[in-house]
Amino acid sequence: MSRASILNAVKKNKPDLLPLPEIDLDVFSENIDLVKTFIGNVEFVGGRAIQLGSVENIDSEIKNLYPNATKIVSCTRDSNLGTISISKNTNPHGLETIDLAIVKGELAVAENGAVWISENDLTIRVLPFITNDLILIVNKEDIHLHMHSAYKAISKRDRTFGLFLSGPSKTADIEQCLVIGAQGAISLTVLIV
């Protein structure tokens, strides 16, 4: 193990201590319509965001959007469309044929269309990636202006695994042509309630 030698070399070679800067969040504050900005950014990153009147409309909206989905995993009480139930003991490889996953996001970020979801919301970590299509549900009160505010909101969480997810999986690796649907979910719909 080179641990000691690396740390010693760093100690010897590093410059004198420089201070951590103070972060003044006022610089980033903006008085904008958070829901509208969020929806615009979800569309910009290749997803779709729909604002619903109430939680009761969720299932009819999903049926309308994905009429052919049969293997559905729902990780939220907001939807009763789940046809396959999963638990912490489910083998992640078994999720390979899932058509649609429905997950409740904890919060969303207006500036980039991202939704924060964590292991608690997913049950199985690979779910939002391995599913063919993905639906995320967020409350409109949980939309934050920017990432600084979002990190403040998740600072007290139990840290296992979590992610900011913005749009469907995509790539432009072949001649810079954007193709939606690389290795993860090929579509993303965010339902705002």
Partner: peptide
């Protein structure tokens, strides 16, 4: 892009 599609935070192994 305003952020990458996935920004995954790994803290504990599953």
């Amino acid at each position: 892009q305003p952020i990458t599609t996935y920004s995954s935070h790994f803290n504990k192994p599953a």
